[in-house]
Amino acid sequence: MNPPRRDRDRGLVRPYVVTEGRSAPSRNHFDHVTLIIAQRDAPHALLSPEGRAVLQLCRPGALSVAEISAYLQLPMSVLRIVLADLMDSGHITSRAPSPALHPRNDRPLLEALLRGLRAL
């Protein structure tokens, strides 16, 4: 008995059209795994409740955008707007996932990852 065969279907037009929301460039800055670091000394006075919640959550240390989204139950699309505002007002800094563009091209990173996994 053989498993059912796969049809290569890359060229087909799919029965769904997904509307993709366009977002401002500064929001694209926040990947799922961009790390967010709260700045301690910036005043909180004029912040939105969501902005305050982000700062409170990140006070003990850095978290990724996806983790913040999960803890605060904010969809990524909404959180990116909140984060862009916090960045503009100097309340947070961020650390981009490395390397931001093509992690697959980074052989030293891949090799370090392999060593790390094998050492588990």
Binding site: L35, L57, R95, P97, S98, P103
Partner: peptide, 17 residues
């Protein structure tokens, strides 16, 4: 929101993948 457990926060200088 629920709070993260102790030890959840990162230093901020890690390489995230």
């Amino acid at each position: 929101h629920c709070d993260p457990a102790a030890g959840t926060h990162l230093g901020g200088d890690e390489t995230a993948i």
